Amino acid sequence: MPRPYRIFYPGATYHVHARGNRRGAIFYEDRDYLHYLALLEQVRSTHPFDLHSYCLMTNHLHLQIEISHTPLSQIIKELHSRYAIYFNRKYDYDGHLFQGRYGAKVIESIDHFLGVSRYIHRNPLEAGMVGDMANYEWSSYLSYICKTENPHIYTQRTLSYFNEPAHEQYRLYTESENKNADELIWVPR
């Protein structure tokens, strides 16, 4: 039975996730994370997209990505193929770096869009890697709460859904234990 086709239309937004083969590490050191982000920018230069949030964990990753005209499958194939070649050469490995096909779910509502952003940024906290999400270096979270420049992401869409000060409201929304912290979002329901 063939795999189902990925949903594609210009402007679609996705929650992409990929895990290391056999749940193994896909990043060992800072240089690996930096290389993945550099490759992301190289791929973006030929296949434009907006990255709304990301979190690169030791053995998996999450991207919240809005495509333009290039199908997501082309973007991820190029990005992950190039990263796997880099990783396998660097560590003298053979075979697949990523476990199976990457996961991608289309985001079709504002609630889902914001929930994915929250989920992605909470990942290191939920995994017990940090006590404060702001302390995790390989996520886009700091760009949202500290107004620090991050060339990899586009924060405007996400922050547009919050009252001012949007950075603080987003922080409260993301750090809240209540998964339905919707009172912080101004969008009418």
Rank of each mutant, 00 (worst) to 15 (best):
I75P: 07
E66W: 03
F49N: 05
I67H: 01
K77W: 10
Y93K: 15
L34D: 12
C146L: 14
P4T: 13
E177N: 12
A84G: 01
A134M: 13
K179G: 14
Y136H: 08
L172P: 00
F113E: 01
K179V: 12
Q74M: 15
E66Y: 03
R19S: 11
I185S: 06
G100T: 08
H17E: 14
T155W: 06
D182Q: 10
Q74A: 15
S53N: 10
Y86R: 03
S117L: 00
Y136K: 06
V130F: 06
D182R: 12
A84Y: 01
R44L: 02
D111I: 10
L97D: 01
Y36P: 08
G24E: 15
M1Q: 10
Q99K: 08
A104H: 05
L172G: 03
H60V: 01
E149G: 00
V116C: 15
E66G: 12
I76W: 10
A25E: 15
R89V: 03
S143Y: 02
P4E: 14
R3C: 08
L61H: 04
P10Q: 03
T148L: 12
L37P: 07
A104E: 02
Q42M: 11
L34T: 11
V116G: 01
L34P: 01
Q156R: 13
D94K: 12
P124C: 00
N135P: 04
R122M: 09
E66C: 11
G24P: 02
Q156C: 02
Y54F: 15
T148F: 09
S109V: 03
S140V: 02
K105R: 14
K179N: 13
N150M: 09
P188Y: 08
C146F: 12
H60K: 05
H17R: 11
Y36C: 09
F8R: 05
